[in-house]
Design a protein around this nucleic acid. Sequence first.
DNA 1: TAGTTGACCGGAA
DNA 2: ATTCCGGCCAACT
Length: 91
Amino acid sequence: MKKTFTKTFTQRVRDVVRKIPKGKVLSYKEVAKKAGSPNASQAVGSIMSKNYDKTIPCHRVIRSDGKAGRYNRGGIRVKRGLLISEGYYFK
DNA sequence: TAGTTGACCGGAA
DNA sequence: ATTCCGGCCAACT
C-alpha cells in the first residue's frame, strides 16, 4: 500500500532531480511526471529557479523540445557546456 | 480565498 | 526557424 504524499511537490521534485545520473537528462515534463504531477512542468521550472542547492544537478533538466531551457548558475551557455562535458550531445 | 508569477508544453500562424 | 497564445500546476503575496 502506497504512502500518501506528505511532502510538498517541491521536495519531491528535488529528490527526483538529485537522482539523475551523469550523462543523462530529463525534461521538465518527465520530472513533473516522476514527481507525481504529469502536467506541472511549469511548476517544476518555477521550483528550480528558486532552488540553489548544489547537491541537485538542475542542469540535467532540459526542455522537452530538446533545447536547454534556462539556468541560474551561470547561464544557458554554461548549462550546455556541462551537459556536453558529461557526454550528452546537444542539437 | 483569490490573484499573480514563472528555468514549460504543444500547437498554430 | 521564430513568435504568439492558451493550458496546466504549485508557490507566493
